[in-house]
Design a protein around this nucleic acid. Structure first.
Lengths: 211, 211
DNA sequence: TAGATTGTTAATCGATTAACAATC
DNA sequence: TAGATTGTTAATCGATTAACAATC
């Protein structure tokens, strides 16, 4: 499986989408699919699907296509969803609270283990089953529970400091929702979700659409 | 400004990031910047910055660089942020509520004008200043208020129907948060924010990082 | 003016698509 | 077996980078 040849970020970003479509096909009882059929559903080329999948291995069978469930599971494994990631959320504002209540994450193997904030008025109150913990307890909590992913849902003024602190505590991945890009030390992976950026892109597209 | 030559989606997706960095530079009182300096801050090539900007016009000056504030405003205009978009949110679950309370959208020219849900228990209650309206009132409300952007924050089982309904009501852009891709009629722009996809990509990167 | 830096063309690089031999 | 469809190589396309003349 480790083909040694570098897999491009473009390919990696497409994997969750394949995973999603294959999951839906599973749910609707489809057992096999060809790259051609899948390409039509997803509005991409069959060639691209075959190229993408072959970065990771030969999951298909000539003359037959792909077994939907097997491929779904394979992609899940490639994405590391079977690893049981432990996740914390830092920042219990509106967004942090919404994400803490989000059931879909756990369903995909991301287990929330703690929620933190620095506001004394919030600390101690509950979001569902999760008590909001004092950010001061981050060090102790992390040593004990060893989360590997942290969601950053704090204002941009605090985001950098929180990210750095988490990096030093051995966190391996950050999902950053704050309206700023964060620099993290080598070895920590960061994924940005800039909601305002998406709205702006949408605005551009509305303004410039052919019609 | 309309160069007629097609502007690639890659360029468009980078515009909000330029806008963000220029905004920060403005805030910190920087008045001019060269493509080289900006490229170092943003970890991209100076060449790419100049190429990107020149899709829209010559905003720089040889031997000087770019005026930060002017460029910031130009990119804002290119993105259509000066148009005063009216926005509605459909789905007042945890995510919908969080987005309704999100102050950053309004600051960038996206004015929330209504929040909708189909749950009788929610309808009539308030999120901040916004009453949750009955989804049945969507037709009347839209005719009267003419929102151009809708945020879809409903479960994936309802997302397709909501999107179609909104499309027929003349909505121009959709920001889709549901865990599914949505097909919309020609002329409606859709931008997906698949939070689970971002987590999965992050999971892959953690699993496969060099170290 | 001399120095700096843009705007833009040309070269390179990488990603996507097409084609087809291999094979189930 | 014949038909279908993969895996993979080769061709194409487009995006990024480099280079430099134009010019402030």
């Amino acid at each position: 499986m480790e083909n040694s040849k570098k897999i491009s970020f473009e390919v990696i970003k497409r994997l969750p989408r394949y995973y999603r479509y294959l999951g839906e096909l599973c749910d609707s009882g489809v057992t096999r699919i060809s790259s051609k059929e899948l390409s039509e559903k997803m509005s991409v080329t069959a060639s691209q699907i075959r190229q993408d999948l072959n970065c990771f291995g030969g999951f298909g069978q000539q003359g037959y296509g792909y077994n939907v469930e097997a491929l779904y599971n394979e992609i899940g494994k490639i994405l590391g969803l079977n690893r049981g990631h432990k996740m914390i959320i830092v920042g219990a504002g509106n967004l942090g609270r919404a994400l803490a209540s989000y059931k879909s994450f756990e369903r995909r193997g991301f287990k929330l283990v703690g929620v933190f904030d620095n506001d004394p008025k919030k600390i101690g109150s509950y979001i569902g089953e999760y008590p909001i913990l004092d950010i001061k307890a981050l060090e102790d909590f992390t040593k004990e529970n060893k989360p590997d992913i942290a969601i950053i849902a704090v204002p941009k003024t605090e985001a950098g400091e929180v990210a750095l602190r988490l990096s030093h505590l051995g966190i391996r991945g950050l999902l950053n929702f704050s309206y700023t890009d964060i620099k993290v030390p080598e070895g920590v992976e960061i994924e940005n979700v800039h909601l305002s950026d998406s709205l702006m892109t949408l605005s551009y597209r509305i303004k410039n659409k052919k019609q």
